[in-house]
Amino acid sequence: MGKLALGVYPGLVGSACYDFSLKLAAAAADKGHKVSIWYSGNATGSVKAHQKHLKDYSTAEKYLTALLEKGVEICTCEACTIARGIQKPEGIPGVQWNSMHWYLAAIHSADRVLHIGGE
């Protein structure tokens, strides 16, 4: 099976691009592919734990938790995340925090990269 690296940059709320990335990652993982997700920019706001799912807003936590259980590797840009006032202990358990080179390393070993640009 292949290896897919996703780079996700859009904010959780505001477009369906973020939601699409979750669906794609789940579909790829279900097919047996190895999937990694890199969050940068506004997407990093989605790694905060204790999200309340209001129906008018996209939500991430329950989907990210499910992806982690499927073996999907998820990493957030530490600088982007703390710049938004989110500290590591507040993050969703299992999500990694690292620097931008994590994404480049994921790209290095990926068969396909889907880079979803943000705002």
């Binding site: 940059y9 940068s40 920019g41 506004n42 620097s99 931008m100 080179h101 994404y103 480049l104 640009g117 943000g118 705002e119």
Partner: peptide, 12 residues
């Protein structure tokens, strides 16, 4: 932000 992130990611 992404135009800036292109540069910082490249630097990595």
């Amino acid at each position: 932000e992404t135009s800036r992130l292109a540069m910082t990611h490249a630097l990595a």
